[in-house]
Design a protein around this nucleic acid. Sequence first.
DNA 1: CGCCACTATCTATGTTGATAGTTAGTTAGC
DNA 2: GCTAACTAACTATCAACATAGATAGTGGCG
Lengths: 206, 206
Amino acid sequence: MSLRYALLALLSVEPMTGYDLYKEFEASVGHVWHAPDSQIYPELRRMEKEGLLDGEEVTWGQRGKKRRYHITDAGVQAFRDWMNTTLEYTRVRDPAHLKAAYLEWAAPEAAREQMRAHIEHHTGLRQQWEQRIREIDQDASEMLNRRLAGTPEADRDRVKAFKRFTYEGLVARAEQEIAWAERGLDLIDDLYANRRSSRQGAGTKK
Amino acid sequence: MSLRYALLALLSVEPMTGYDLYKEFEASVGHVWHAPDSQIYPELRRMEKEGLLDGEEVTWGQRGKKRRYHITDAGVQAFRDWMNTTLEYTRVRDPAHLKAAYLEWAAPEAAREQMRAHIEHHTGLRQQWEQRIREIDQDASEMLNRRLAGTPEADRDRVKAFKRFTYEGLVARAEQEIAWAERGLDLIDDLYANRRSSRQGAGTKK
DNA sequence: CGCCACTATCTATGTTGATAGTTAGTTAGC
DNA sequence: GCTAACTAACTATCAACATAGATAGTGGCG
């Protein structure tokens, strides 16, 4: 259901084609919400049918054409309504922690590898998100600048502040995940060191 | 794909019926991986067909019957293989942060309500997870005790340590989310206070 | 001119998950 | 003996996502 609102958020700035939206998803919103083109195109058609968007045929080169979508008043209203509705949370479903709970089944090296992959994954995310924060601070994001251009001056601070706040939260989360996996690596070392060198008394070093 | 491995994890301790597994999902593993019965029953049948489980008809009362599933060697192997394979991470898809990124669209009170709901949701999760940690420390979990009973003594520390580690990570995550939403509440106050009481100079009236 | 990378869109298939409803037996208390 | 709550299992439908591939036009380079 959120895909629809991610699309409305982007289209509230300016009209775009499905391909534009797909590219934008890859480049920026995709850091918060990812969607493949095969999901975007049909959703846009559905949204047009429901009156949230207006589609406009645009020619492109000699014979090429593309469909550019404009948000309608109903679309703006739908987005605003969603924003004013408290979101219901879905149940936890976390493969990384599920695996962690049974890590004694893995070979020590595989367990370590799992933790390393977790660190790598979240390090990558953190970098992307920190990059987004830098772009916000330096007004370097095309999309955000266009959004700000269409925003009353008095509200611009808020637009930037909420965006920054969002990415700060994601960075903090990534850092938490990295810290957790680092502790996992230490734990694995401890648990499998105890074996070989017969844990001599209360062998909790480190 | 993970549902299958969550089921194998539980069935590696002892044979269970679909209903047992469903109940166990609600009570414990569900804090890491949730699944409705309508997903569990067909998956069990599929797993039996693939040789990961053996199903056994058990009578219950006069006419009642139920199907108890035993893990097979192939099932154990499949689980071990999964545990030794590094998991691929899926793309980010986070409704709460998607919404946060466009919070300027929400009425201030709705924005606050969103943050409060985030805090409440993660406070609930934290409580459940802290409870799990307490159970681990006090050997109060039936399921875990049965698992430990079937584990060589030398490995028991590990079983408990990894379980504890998992829930510690989840608690830390919940705390991070709570702290983030608290900051969100402060931010909302700041951003909308500026309006009414023109904070020091910077004459943004309305 | 031919090729290639890119733009643009669509389709098809399969899995996963959410929601809800159906059927039927069991157990315990009033 | 009835009823309510629980145990047990299955079915149906729909939305969401993943993955892959099909089709076709564009624009630039050598």
